[in-house]
Design a protein around this nucleic acid. Structure first.
Lengths: 389, 389
DNA sequence: TTGTATGCGTTATCAC
DNA sequence: GTGATAACGCATACAA
């Protein structure tokens, strides 16, 4: 590095005095690792050349195999490792995808967890070269609010997600306001699950409409003529989709929907009893399709009622769940219904988010669920016909 | 910014032209998040002042409450969030803790997952004001090894972890070399699980020695005189600890250890048969303590053998597992053994890591396990004595 | 009390 | 083909 003092500047002409610092511990006790400058010095080239060689941009040409080898060798011998912080700062991206759930990401109650989704999220993120940032602010109101030592730092619950290149949101109870703000700021956001709330929000969800329709069709094939939907009292999109699929399915099969075809309750354990069940059967209902929920209360209630009434399915009546039964009830006969491809949904959400970050305007269509024939649905009483197909 | 052209330099005097880029999408389509410069502009102060205010270093004094408020307000309204990479580069902290597991963090096979640990990790991280970065390099060989487009870059699997303030490692199969490098570079690293490999590595683990000792003592109280340890063939610290606790427990109870007291096998399903079991009983062994493993193969094998031999426990022999049985076998009678406080371990690891980052030299002692009496261990044949406490 | 200047380790864009 | 040099966003010693 020959010094030619040809420039006169009032700024201190203090050459960046590194490249000889070696392993000197810094004040914080950290030892400094070799940088490209030192590799350059050893190889007798400029730092920029080192960067070029190592990043391998101009592969074949532009750089002599000679130089190339010398640089690589120097890097190796010095044990050079790039500093990810510097690298991302310069590249204006940080390769981080945020994951924000509105409950803890790892709840103590594993049943309520988003684990199956996260499997897909992690895999796809890895495939695309992203790391994941789990915002712990969701749980315990901890980090989100403000760091303990810097109480004034203006990071609101959702604002810290901006530290990532984009963010995935999972779960209900998302504050529309803050989401809206993020979106209008052009921050890439994808919601895992159907959601229409903030205008312009991208989401990736399952096609509950079709899946539910299939289940109803199955009942029709078994010869059922009166099917009832048992659902909770929440009005979120997934519930609405299932009901819509139910109604459409009835129509498609030539059955009448009517208000009595849907039974809503916020407390299935209380309302869905053996007596209730007998009344419905007396009215001519021979099959029930049941909403899936976090707690599985609906499925729990109706299977309990069936047993309490001394009935059995599919002998006396047919049952299907619009999703999967709660884990603790998932042993005996396999429930008729469908599987939500949760991992696939997670992966799709990550792809959508990556596309958004890349500025692409793609949109992800609802992901199909897989019909599960199971054995809780069978021929309607008085019918023997097996379903065709 | 008054331009005083007093300096003559051949370098282009091009003022850093930011702070007015606004929400302009960059060529890649990304919208840039606001920086301190823009906050400064809005507040009518310098970038440095913004940094001072936001980092809250000189709390009460040095900065006018006026200025302070203006800056905070500007930051808030712009949705400012510090760039983690830039913060790291500038030798500050970014309040991110890395989590690196050597298999996927969310494996498809839930049984093998570190979920229980992560529960504690997340909670404690939130409490301390950290967010978590899940490095996906572990899974799918994806991003970690080397960026696909730049094959020559000397990035090890672990290189990206330096983006965080420190990193937690979970799982076996950790590359000692890279860990060593991180440690010698002064990067804060904590290993979840006992590990002696790289000199100076901090770890947080469970006290398997004492816990195993307690189990052996329980057997002694029940009057057993010959107890056998059934273990896998891996030589990791947890296994070693259990064996040590076993031997010490025997000694403490006045039983002889001897080489025959330990049975090692890499294929329990093949080696631990009904016949094998009968032979051991014939030799006078009346109780078995079984290692816990990822697969639960040892516990599976011996319970199967007991059944196949037409025996039952604790009637004919006593059984205990040094941990918990695999989930799918965890229904019938509760297994005697101990619970590993996984969430607590995760939390302790986070605390230790935070201490390391803060430059404190604390060390975390092994965390105690909880004895589980269960009902697979009982009086030795010919004895009626109940254990005294 | 606030602003100026400079460094952190890369990447990327130019001249040569 | 290679070598200066300017960002990247933030922190911080020092000047004003």
């Amino acid at each position: 590095m020959n010094d030619r003092r040809t420039m006169r500047s009032h700024t201190v002409d203090q050459p960046r005095n590194r490249a000889k610092r070696g392993r000197t511990p810094t004040p914080t006790g950290k030892t400094s690792r070799p940088r490209q400058a030192e590799v350059a010095e050893l190889a007798g080239v400029s730092q920029a050349t080192v960067s070029l060689v190592l990043s391998g941009r101009k592969q074949g040409q532009a750089i002599t195999a000679q130089t190339r080898e010398r640089v690589l060798e120097s890097a190796r011998s010095l044990g050079y490792v790039p500093d990810p912080a510097a690298r991302r700062l310069a590249a204006a991206r940080n390769d981080l995808l945020g994951v924000f759930s509105f409950t803890a990401t790892f709840p103590t109650d594993v049943e309520h967890s988003y684990y199956p989704f996260l499997v897909g999220v992690e895999q796809e993120a890895a495939r695309l070269g992203y790391d994941l940032v789990l915002f712990t602010g969701s749980s315990s109101g901890g980090a989100g609010a403000s760091a303990p030592d810097r109480p004034d730092y203006p990071v609101g619950a959702l604002s810290r997600v901006r530290l990532a290149d984009g963010c995935l949101f999972i779960g209900r109870h998302a504050p529309s306001g803050e989401l809206k703000r993020l979106i209008s700021d052009g921050f890439p956001v994808v919601y895992l699950g159907r959601r229409d709330e903030p205008e312009g929000l991208r989401w990736v969800g399952a096609d509950y409409v079709s899946a539910t329709g299939e289940v109803v069709a199955e009942m029709a094939r078994w010869g059922h003529e009166r099917v009832m939907l048992l659902r909770g009292n929440e009005d979120d999109p997934p519930s609405a989709d299932r009901q819509r699929g139910f109604v459409e399915g009835l129509d498609a099969s030539g059955m009448t929907a009517g208000p009595q075809a849907v039974f809503r309750t916020s407390d299935p354990a209380r309302d869905v009893t053996a007596e209730w069940l007998r009344d419905r059967l007396a009215e001519g209902v021979t099959a029930f399709v049941v909403e899936e929920s976090d707690t599985g209360a609906e499925w729990r209630a109706i299977t309990t009622a069936v047993r309490a009434a001394g009935l059995s399915c599919p002998g006396d009546l047919s049952l299907a769940i619009l999703g999967s039964p709660p884990a603790d009830l998932d042993h005996g006969p396999e429930a008729t219904g469908f599987d939500v491809p949760r991992a696939e949904l997670g992966a799709a959400a990550v792809r959508q988010l990556a596309a958004l970050i890349a500025g692409e305007e793609t949109d992800t269509p609802p992901v199909a669920c897989t019909f599960r024939r199971g054995s809780t649905a069978g021929p309607a009483p008085g019918r023997r016909a097996a379903p065709s197909v």
